[in-house]
């Protein structure tokens, strides 16, 4: 059983929902990345999504775009991100790490090399925003061979036949994009999501995480009542951006603990 599946199984037994924070690796600087991952785990993260910075993050809003730019300016590459994951694994063997990013850095490294290196580094899942299922058969097979779950997005506009196609390839969990638009947008409609998730569950038998538009404990709580996992990205990256140097870990921990408490109903 993969580390991601084991995590969700344990949570289900405890009747709890997963909290999945997203941070961009190398933001605000490279030295902060591994301590930040440990801080996220300590504050209650069940899975950590680690963003691989890319020069052209087409599906991201301004907040995550800026975080990618900061990370790229200090030279954070896919190779370096894999190093962060490996470093984190040395002292945390429990919290799954999912790399989230765009296709081209992986294309440049090569599928075989990337899948092997990610497996070696203890990466548990890979979500490539611009590899829809039909373009990712080869990579998905290689990832699975290396013990890594290929994670996919499902959109509000995805029709049934596509959901089926995605469900066939997806492992670990699927990521439901809760609104039309880019990361960091506002206006989450919980009722609409509730209906859509019920439809999804007919075809999707693995856990469903919901992300995009979750900005506070209240929305996190509402989403946790209908989804298996709550993904928090832009709100967290915004916190990193506005924190003075030296305060990043503390401020992020406070925010994640708040979200955790809200989700757990404490």
């Amino acid at each position: 059983m993969s580390r991601i599946t084991a995590t969700f199984t344990a949570l289900r037994e405890q009747k709890r929902k997963a909290l999945i924070p997203f941070v961009t690796a190398g933001d605000p600087d490279q030295a902060t990345c591994v301590p930040l991952m440990h801080a996220l785990a300590a504050a209650g993260a069940d899975v950590i999504e680690l963003g691989v910075p890319f020069s052209d993050p087409m599906a991201d809003g301004p907040t995550i775009q800026r975080s990618s730019e900061r990370a790229l300016r200090n030279g954070t590459s896919l190779k370096i991100v894999l190093g962060f994951a490996a470093e984190f694994r040395k002292t945390n063997n429990r919290t799954p790490v999912v790399l989230m990013g765009y296709a081209n850095p992986i294309e440049a490294m090569g599928y075989d090399k990337f899948a092997a290196a990610a497996g070696e580094a203890g990466v548990d899942g890979v979500l490539v925003v611009d590899y829809p299922p039909e373009e990712s058969l080869k990579l998905s097979a290689l990832l699975e061979k290396n013990g890594i779950d290929p994670i996919f997005l499902i959109a509000p506009t995805s029709i049934d036949s596509r959901i089926e196609e995605i469900a066939k390839l997806a492992r670990g969990y699927v990521y439901y994009v809760s609104l039309r638009g880019v990361t960091g947008s506002a206006n989450l409609n919980v009722e609409e999501i509730r209906k859509k998730l019920a439809e999804l569950r007919v075809r999707v038998k693995i856990p469903i995480g919901v992300g995009f538009g979750i900005r506070d404990g209240k929305t996190a709580r509402a989403v946790s009542e209908i989804a298996d996992a709550v993904v928090i990205g832009s709100r967290l990256v915004e916190e990193i951006e506005k924190s003075p140097p030296g305060r990043v870990l503390d401020n992020v921990s406070v925010l994640v603990k708040d979200m955790r408490a809200a989700i757990d109903g404490r």
């Binding site: 829809p132 997005l153 959109a155 506009t157």
Partner: peptide
């Protein structure tokens, strides 16, 4: 060529 976009654009 191909279609390398996020799932959000596939239907469009």
């Amino acid at each position: 060529g191909g279609v390398f976009v996020a799932e959000t654009l596939i239907e469009a």
